[in-house]
Design a protein around this nucleic acid. Sequence first.
RNA 1: GGGGGCGUAGCUCAGUUUGGUUAGAGCACUCGACUGUCACUCGAGAGGUCGCGGGUUCGAGCCCCGUCGCUCCCGCCA
Length: 581
Amino acid sequence: MGGALRRADVGATVTVGGWVHRSRDLGGQLFLALRDREGLLQCSFNPDWTAPAVIAAAAAVGVESVVLIEGTVHARPADQVNPEMATGEVEVRATGIRVVGPALTPAIPVATSKDTKPPAEELRLRHRVLDLRRPELQHALMLRHRLAKATRDYLSGLGYLELETPILTKPTPEGARDFLVPSRVHAGEFYALPQSPQIYKQLFMCCGFDRYFQIARCFRDEDLRADRQLEFTQIDIEASFIGREDIITMAEGLVRALWAEAGIAVETPFPRMSYAEAMERYGCDRPDLRYGLEIRDLTAVFRGSESGIIQSALAAGGRVRAIVVPGGGAWSRKQVDELEAIAKQAGAGGLLRLKAHQGALEGPLAKFLPADAQAALGLQEGELLLGVAAADRISSPALDRVRQECAARLGLVDPAVRKFLWVLDFPMFDQDPETGALAAVHHPFTSPNAEDMAARPDAPATWRALAYDCVLNGTELGGGSIRTSDPAVQSRMFQLLGIGDVREQERRFGFLLEGLRAGAPPHGGIAFGFDRIAMLLANATSLRDVIAFPKTTAARALFEGAPTQVPVADLDELHIRPVEG
RNA sequence: GGGGGCGUAGCUCAGUUUGGUUAGAGCACUCGACUGUCACUCGAGAGGUCGCGGGUUCGAGCCCCGUCGCUCCCGCCA
């Protein structure tokens, strides 16, 4: 291929195919920059070696047309080497050209220089064939391929089998909305697209396939974001006769292999932290460890406060928690108000603020504090204390957001630093504070911690789960768990989650329970967000840059024009009718 | 479902603050000149439903109301 020609190819007679990236017509001679996925190649048309008719034909070709160029590879003179091109030491002296795919004038430019802005997202998606020709996107999708291959190589090397699972499947309760597909054969019945292959991979374990993986497409009908698409890809993994440590070690090896593919060395093992510790110190179950600003419990100091806000929060069983921001004392009233707005948006009633100035505390609360408060807080000159007095359920998310914003303002978020982390010991259930209803934090098939279950059988809200998340710089890369392999325990879990009726359990999950009853090995697994990893390693900021044909945030495919209306006859055949209005 | 940003030539944008003659620039495109360029250069030209609809006004790219599209965030996404 033309973009791969190097000095060693000098002398070769070649026919190179590609797209006309740019042309420079100097009058008597001209140069075409020919592009393929490997890069750019200069083709030189000159009367000394090119027939006049060929020069005329080359001069008439429009950019983005597909051409075949015949010629000989020549070394460029030293003063004409282009160090910015991989092929910069050579050029093809053309003797012939054939336009095999003439192109209309492109609606959006493909050949851009470093400092030009890409076209609007809408145009990029509408003219995706042109957009995907751009070298950045070519590189991103080629990286994506290498990551998929590295995944297959690594897991195959460990004896994992790549097995496929159905796309037309049964609706299962995985939290998100399902995409439904009407059945033509069975009036009024629907398939669902899988939100993940979760149950199938557990069934593979019951089948005895031991170690499974799949680069699996998943579908969730929820609103989109820069890092969320309707359909996305995960690296789905499951294994039998293993425990948490086996999965973690295997997963660390996978991360190492993937990052190595992008030329980045990753050190393992990753540090670990319990969910409880992450929530206490960072207010978040996927903390960004690139910076400090850890949350401190200052309840003891504020207990003596005469402030009504604090007293009522403490009386309700809450705490006073805060972060201390070095240099924050210099922020203006307005800047701190913005932080408070962030805290309020996250659910807090407000933000307590204190700063030390000339040995005394300043802030709306200062006068309500006991005299020894300054000594107890140890606040230094220039530091700003930002706190929330409330239940942890309120203060954790609020302080998490405030902490992230402060770190961004102080420039503490270094994109060159990578802090991997395992978060362990998630709670099994999330309890609704009003109704008391339990919901699975991970999913209903996660195994609870057996010791917790034995110690407090009547308090499931206190049980920990054998679940784990892999986190990088505040982003969840993947997560998994050891599963419940005992059908009786699984049935109990359904019961705790409000599916008490046995017939209901059988109707919805009978196929899983049947697998477990047929003799299930202990098993567990993990799933990584493949697109998100590709995005990180391609230095992209949107999933759309690592997915060839993505949807817009309004869930439309602009290039193909999906979704679309269909003829009424098609609907009739599927036994569905549009709702009037 | 809610909040913010953007929408002017094929593309990227200026013009909107303070309504006023014929809406501009760079790139791309067309034509012409040019024999070593590499974002070639130079000259000329063509190119506009100011997203769409309605309103205010003597007059709207600019003000008001509505609406559509793209985007970022909240909700949502176990």
